[in-house]
Design a protein around this nucleic acid. Structure first.
Lengths: 360, 360
DNA sequence: AGCGCCAATTCAATCGTTTGAAAAGCGAGG
DNA sequence: CCTCGCTTTTCAAACGATTGAATTGGCGCT
């Protein structure tokens, strides 16, 4: 082990250091540390103890260079703070952990440039794989970087036109079906709207199209002005809905593009004292926090962790060199979570005991 | 560039491939790609074009091995989904980006084992630095791993007894001072409590101690049963507060350990139709979503992004080999955000136009 | 004593960069 | 024509691991 100059930080010991200090070869150390069976138990023990003693820590960069294998998968998303994304991250983590991979997340904040930078960095690092929720305005050619270094990529939540990478998304049609079916069965609205969401993101189009399809076959009128896209935050939803409320009474029922947006809508309705019976609202996502609104938010849970797990499964296949199988791509079945915001159940709500959450 | 066998994936081209295909040496390629001034403009251009043409991507693992320098800092936290953490991540990112570093986050879910695993992984990867919000029950010796490979570490939010790594935290005393000062000035409560939070985490002790200090000098009675610690989620807060409400009327004012918890408390109060004038609540954190509750949550903003930035600054110093300077460690000044939950302002609230948020 | 065999260990090449030092090319000055 | 001084390019040795092939040593068998 090299002696360090006075002011200098002691360099971390290497296998070589271990080897010489034990009077064996580096190969022996390497094999021993990884518990390879050709090494005798006695030497293995000696090596391991010495390693501990010297505070040796494995240098993965060196190993990876040699083996051309990596153990890290990147999750690149607009915003890690988004609870939906957080759930996805957990699902992904649990699915790739079995292969000894681990997941790191970074936020792009919807900036294509930032996204470009992190995709590049991840690729230069030769990540085992990348799961991407594309920033808005991401084009096909923005995904060229990982491709050129053969880093497997799976796209989540927002599809990119012309992209060849496998795509995993929620079951947008079924989601809307579920939401509307519930509203029609229990609330019999005369007027409806599809509120919020980013018009240029692919799920918006899918859901809104389905929405219009369904209601066109029913005896309801679509209050188009209330079907207004918004930024994907509760604040944006609040502001936009609040403004609409100044211009007239709300629809009898509104489907919100996400739970976050629904939270803003609820706030706006609360401020004008509009009850669920006047305006029923249902969200989409199934966030844990949507149980904490007043009234409790009725929502369509989209199975976020399953999405993450699904992405993980496809990624693992891709890493193993297998092409994505079609059945991997089948989206998760959404489920309806009934609370008070649709007007079906009275307060007080009893929150089911297994609910999760997040906080400081 | 090596030709690949039929079924095989084409290996990514290396500098060597570029070099031979251009009839120059690897050194030239290496220097050219990094824009070193000693290379003539003409060759630089040729190299760059060729690189593009061949889809060359830099192999950072190899470079890092050679240079012993890395460009990635790990943010290890209990839960990335926690909005506070997300803000910290942003602050950290913005502060280290200037040095060309970038931040990756991982969640430990309060598991010391999981934390151990990721600290080990980050250390084995020789991350440039690590910022850690320790999982509960983290002991001093759990931090030994990064130390042995000389990876700079800074601890955030929860201090660890006996740890030598620099610590950055919120100004717990000032936070409590601010909350109580506001309540006393505007609400004149007879009874108060400090609700929620994890009793074994260091900020809890600091805040609760200060709380008791202050009120002991005032004409108020502390309703101890209501000062109950909880898990750090809105759900946990809701459940615990709900239960307390069945046993009697709430205190006139309660300070909640976090905004998330306050959100649960508000939900519970809403369910029994208790208004802010009966029970004033103030949260701590200053989350964007706390503007979306009904009533809007009055809260103490702790300057989360500053915390992240602060951690980043210290980390950069440590990476540069400088010890943490004392003034780096001075915590951010908290600020009061007044909304309705403390009973000071009537509805409807106008949300200030610059508020941020997060969602799908 | 000689031989073969097996288990345990070591050799040495390799992964793809970086970088200090050496070399090559070339025009100018003596 | 030689030498000097530039600029530009190349040499070759790292960095710290992995791994197929070669080596060593000990043991049992004849």
């Amino acid at each position: 082990m090299r002696r360090s100059a006075p002011g200098e930080v002691a360099a971390a010991p290497t296998m070589q250091d271990l080897a010489t200090s034990l009077g064996v070869s580096v190969s022996t150390v390497s094999l021993a540390l990884r518990g390879h069976s050709v090494i005798s138990e006695a030497t293995r023990a000696r090596v391991v103890t010495k390693a501990e003693q010297l505070g040796y820590v494995y240098n993965r960069a060196a190993a990876n260079l040699r083996t051309q294998r990596r153990h890290l998968v990147g999750l690149v998303v607009p915003d890690v703070a988004n609870p939906v994304v957080a759930d996805i991250a957990l699902g992904l983590q649990s699915s790739v952990a079995s292969e000894g991979l681990f997941v790191v997340s970074t936020s792009t904040l919807e900036s294509v440039d930032a996204q470009h930078a992190v995709l590049r960095a991840l690729t230069e690092d030769r990540a085992a794989g990348i799961v991407l929720i594309p920033a808005l305005e991401t084009k096909r050619q923005d995904l060229a970087i990982p491709a050129s270094a053969a880093v497997p990529l799976v796209i989540l939540n927002r599809s990119i036109e012309g992209a060849t990478a496998p795509y995993v998304g929620a079951a947008d049609e079924k989601i809307v079906d579920l939401a509307l079916a519930h509203l029609f069965d229990h609330h019999h609205p005369q007027t409806v709207a599809y509120f919020g969401g980013i018009a240029s993101a692919s799920p918006y189009l899918a859901r809104r199209t389905r929405f219009e399809q369904i209601i066109s076959g029913r005896e309801v009128t679509h209050l188009e002005p209330w079907s207004r896209p918004t930024a994907p935050t509760a604040e944006a939803g609040y502001r936009a809905f609040r403004e609409l409320l100044t211009q007239g009474p709300p629809p009898d029922a509104v489907v919100c593009h996400s739970d976050s947006i629904a939270i803003g809508v609820l706030k706006a309705l609360n401020e004008v004292d509009a009850s669920p019976s006047e305006c029923a609202v249902v969200g989409i996502d199934g966030l844990a926090t949507s149980a904490m609104t007043t009234p409790g938010l009725t929502t369509i849970a989209i199975g976020t962790d399953e999405l993450g797990r699904g992405a993980g499964a496809i990624l693992l296949d891709a890493i193993a060199g297998e092409p994505a199988r079609a059945d991997d791509l089948s989206p998760v079945t959404p489920t309806l979570v009934v609370r008070q915001s649709c007007g079906c159940i009275g307060d007080p709500l009893v929150v089911p005991a297994e609910a999760g959450g997040h906080s400081q």
